[in-house]
């Protein structure tokens, strides 16, 4: 079976401009084709996912990378909303945060996060994030597409 070549649509929910830039840098070396969409806080992420308040033309992401510490609606709240929504819950969510706290890790998995990655301090380790996304992406291209 030949895999269909499709561009991975990735939604990065992140408010820190340095972390946005680092994620962009890491993804610029990724082997798979992708579009990186940015939502700079929790409310914007929800507007994007529900295609409202100016995001009516937003593309449904294949994978979400979510920071926990966000202004406005918090990352965990965004995660909860996604994972309790019958249409959005299948989208893999990678929590990417500077928190190493057991509480945050446990709560994220309780809310059905698909993966939890602590933000690396050096750039090289940021590739782990890209590999994480690639892993989910390989799964997705083998699955029937999610219609929303």
């Amino acid at each position: 079976m030949k895999k269909e070549v499709r561009i991975a649509e990735i939604l990065l929910v992140e408010d820190n401009e340095g972390d946005i830039e680092l994620t962009r840098e890491a993804f610029s070396d990724a082997v798979f084709q992708h579009n990186l969409h940015i939502a700079e806080d929790g409310d914007i992420a929800l507007d994007y996912l529900y295609k409202r308040n100016g995001y009516e033309a937003a593309v449904v992401p294949d994978i979400i990378i979510l920071d926990l510490n966000l202004p406005s609606t918090d990352g965990k709240e965004v995660l909860e909303i996604i994972k309790f929504d019958p249409l959005l819950k299948r989208i893999p969510v990678i929590v990417l945060t500077s928190s190493e706290a057991d509480k945050d890790i446990a709560e994220s998995y309780d809310l059905h996060a698909n993966c939890y990655i602590v933000k690396p301090v050096n750039v090289g380790e940021f590739m782990e994030v890209v590999q994480g996304v690639e892993h989910f992406w390989n799964d997705i291209v083998c699955l029937p597409s999610i219609e929303t």
Binding site: D15, E40, D41, I44, P71, S72, T73, D74, E77
Partner: peptide
Amino acid sequence: VPENLREKIFKVLRRGVSDK
């Protein structure tokens, strides 16, 4: 202040709105 941010806004370094 939206209902879901009522507690968060009193915490250290937490914000209800974006920096921008």
